[in-house]
Structures are given as structure tokens and as C-alpha cells.
Nucleic acid binder design. Structure first.
Lengths: 241, 241
DNA sequence: CGTCGATATTTATACGACAATAGTCGAATG
DNA sequence: CATTCGACTATTGTCGTATAAATATCGACG
């Protein structure tokens, strides 16, 4: 009946990943798409997916619908489900971001991350200096103090670093900037593996303090410059510009 | 049976919007959520949605799953579907963006748009100057020429403007920047209603030409400055900084 | 009064059936 | 021989129902 396509497909391993079958299928299919498994092979039909993975067609359909919502695929009757070009994918979706990381943990991806950060974060710092409220400042200062504590090995410096940058994004009071929390977190988490390896940095707490000081002093231009220095350093480290 | 909640819900109007029932439901529910209809009211159960809209529960489930994929809601057994805080929404999703626009076409939203653009586009122009290829340059020049033609009323100057900015985003050769095509397009489309109203601008073709020249001349810094001027003008027009 | 269990509610999963749609291919016709 | 129209078919779209799992609520009991 269904042509024997039980070749290299993921074994009937029922979705162990997510919290339910649908999320498991979503994860499996999403990773397969981002990995490029269906670049030279047609995306299977719903019936085939259901059969090869040992789930019902309902689960399959819901997973495919979620992939559609994330822009990875589109479905039309009779034509089947087709993988969309990567340009149509919603890269800021946390799932897509995770799958992308698992695919290629490359320097190129890291450079793209930081090319984005060098645009976003200085402006975010400037906005934070203009619109941040005392609670935001407290969060920023908190991240900074945890970074200092991390210098002494008391806390995780990476998590403190992330908290610092995320606090600034939130302090910008612009919902679009807040969207970059996941991207920046991911970038920092993956960045640490490289930057720590390339150079014994970490002692940039002073730079971070300069950003915080400028923000609290309501100095947008100063905050922008100080933040640019932080990320510019990272970019030069990984060989950009 | 189901408590009489047929009050102000959207009438049984079967999804006329999308290309099928599921997309119609997605659009209806998404717009309702973004509009804030369920801020002070619990999100209905799947059975209620299916009943009030006259569709099957399968259609409802698939629509809810797509909303989940976009971050608007989360569902747990027995607890029902709950609307997520706006900070969890994927604002860069084209659907969410559209619904957001339909909700509040406010100056505040326009300012948020352009606060994002002032961060993204100058860097995109700089990247385009470094990594753009002849085909990209041709697209940028094409948009510029269409803008000039638009000056004479030959073409739509807005669409030409959009094409110009989108071409630069694509020329950055960074997939994250390419993601902003929809945001920038939307921002420009809505911006025109305000900026044209506030001031008889439009004669900024010279500024755009300066950006294009710098990019083609492989001058990243010049491109960045020139692009900053374009968007800075818009920001001052709408009263920011 | 507190803790534990029964119960009910809601999503999660499953299966089967039919409808709608749109490629494909063949036949009829000019 | 070419062209157009129609039947066929594969695939998603929609529906209804049934069962399972999870968990909030409430009542009973210690």
C-alpha cells in the first residue's frame, strides 16, 4: 500500500521528548526539517508519518499544524505537505532556534547571533536609560552584582551575564526588544563555549558596570557606547570585522 | 448543559477568513486574544469553542495548537486553555503582527516599530555594504529607481520604499535580519498614514540614494550613518527623542 | 482541622468515515 | 495530430465518537 518508505525514517520511537505525543512529534519533525532531511526528499504524507511513528493521524495533523504555524511547512490538498524555504521560518521561535542550534553549532551561526546583538543591545541600553524604572535598574544592578560574585566563583557567571542582558532588554519598555530575550540567552550560552576557549576573557565586569552606570544615570548615548564595546569585543573575538 | 455562555462570543460565523475552517478559527481566536477579549474572562474550553463556532472539535484543537505554537496560549488537562501573557507572544510572527495592528493602531505602536528599525536597519545597511553581492545591489538600486519614478507618480512610492528596505535586509546575508522583512514592511505601511499626514515629506529620495551609494561603494560606516538619518527622521516626526 | 480519596471536568489520544480539492491521465473531438 | 474536457485518484480537510490521562474540587474520615 504505502510504498515501503520505512528506510531511514526515525524509528517508531514514540515521542519520548515532549510532554505529550503531539509535542514529541513536533520536536521530531521540526528537528528533521531543520536538519535538512527533507531537502532532497519529499515530505511524507500525514498517513505515512502516522504509520512510521506509530501514532494516530490526529497527533500527526496537530504536529504538522504547529509546524505550519512556525512557518516550517505548508500543506495543500492533493499536493501534500511541503517544506518551506528557510527564509520563511520563524527563527525567533524558541523551538526553531533550538533545532537550528542542534543542527549546526558553527562559528557562522555565532557570528550571525552577534551581528544581531550588536544592533539590538546598544539601542536597548539607550532605551533602558530613557524609560527604565527603579525596578528595572534593580534587576540590572542585581545581574551585575551576581557577575561580580561570579568572579569569585560564588555564582554562575554565565547565568548572571544572561540576567544582566535580559534585564536591559526588558527595561527598554519595548515589547519587540523583549522578544530577543531567548535569542540573547541562547547566544550567550553558546558564545561562552567559544570565547572562553579562544581567550581568557571574563574580566569584562568593568564594561558591564559602565553600561549599568550609564543607564542609571539616564545617559542614553553613554549606555549605547558602553554596550557597543561589550558586544564589539565578542565580534572581534570570533573574527568578524 | 454547557452554561449559557453564548453571550458576546463571536457569532457562529463560520470561518470565512482563511482558506479552510482551521485557519478561519485561528484568525478568529487569535484576533480575539490579541484584542484582549479574554483578559478578564477565562478562555473557553475546546468543546465550547467548537459549539459556539459551529465547527468540530478537531478543527478547534488544530487552531488551538497553532495558537500554542505562536505562544499565545498554553493548554493543560483539566485546567483548560489559558492565554499567555503578552510577553510570551511571538511578535515577529506575521499573524500575531497583523492581529496586533488591528487591535491598536496607535502612535505608541508606531514608535515601538521605529525604535526597532533604528537599531536593525543601519546595521543591516552596514552588513549589506560588506556582504552584498551584485544581485543584491541591483535589487537595492531597483527599489531606489522605483522610488524616483514614484516621485513622478508613475509607480507606488510606498511599495518602492518597502522594496528598497527589504532588499537591504536581504543583502545583509544574515538570516536573522531577513526575519524583519515583515516587520519593516508593516511599519512602513502603517507609518505612511502618519508621516504623510504630519508632514509633507516623501522627498527623502536623496537620503535613500545616499544609503544605496554607500552600500555599493562598500562603505559600511557610511551606509550605517545614512540609514540612521532616514529612520531618525521618522522617529523625530512621531515625537520620539 | 487536616489529610486523603472519590469524582468530575477537560485536554490528550485514537479510529474511522466522508468531503473537498487539485493534479494526472486518457479519451473524445476538432 | 493537437487540444480540451472529463473521470480518476491521492491527499488534506472535516466530522463524530469513544476512551485515556491528568488534575482541580470537594467531601469524607481520621
Amino acid at each position: 500500500m504505502t510504498t515501503d518508505t520505512t528506510d531511514v525514517e526515525t524509528p517508531p520511537a514514540i515521542g519520548i521528548i515532549g510532554r505529550n505525543l503531539t509535542h514529541g512529534m513536533l520536536d521530531t519533525l521540526g528537528r528533521a526539517i531543520v536538519t535538512g532531511r527533507y531537502e532532497h526528499r519529499p515530505f511524507p504524507t500525514e498517513a505515512e508519518i502516522a504509520k512510521t511513528h506509530g501514532v494516530s493521524r490526529s497527533v500527526t495533523r496537530e504536529a504538522v499544524k504547529m509546524l505550519t504555524a512556525k512557518g516550517l511547512v505548508s500543506a495543500r490538498p492533493r499536493q501534500g505537505t511541503i517544506v518551506q524555504p528557510a527564509s520563511a521560518w520563524n527563527l525567533f521561535d524558541t523551538d526553531v532556534l533550538r533545532w537550528t542550534l542542534e543542527r549546526k553549532f558553527s562559528v557562522e551561526l555565532l557570528r550571525h547571533f552577534n551581528q544581531l546583538r550588536v544592533a539590538i543591545e546598544p539601542e536597548a541600553a539607550a532605551l533602558a536609560a530613557r524609560f527604565g524604572d527603579p525596578a528595572d535598574f534593580a534587576a540590572i544592578r542585581g545581574g551585575l552584582e551576581r557577575m561580580e560574585a561570579g568572579e569569585a566563583g560564588l555564582t554562575d557567571p554565565l547565568e548572571a551575564d544572561i540576567a544582566f542582558h535580559v534585564a536591559i532588554l526588558r527595561a527598554s519598555k519595548n515589547p519587540f526588544y523583549a522578544q530577543f530575550q531567548s535569542v540573547v540567552s541562547t547566544a550567550l550560552r553558546t558564545s561562552i563555549r567559544f570565547t572562553n576557549r579562544i581567550k581568557g576573557r571574563s574580566a569584562n565586569v568593568a564594561d558591564h558596570a559602565a553600561v549599568a552606570d550609564a543607564i542609571v544615570a539616564r545617559d542614553p548615548a553613554g549606555a549605547r557606547v558602553a554596550m557597543t564595546r561589550i558586544i564589539g569585543d565578542v565580534l572581534t573575538l570570533i573574527g568578524d570585522e
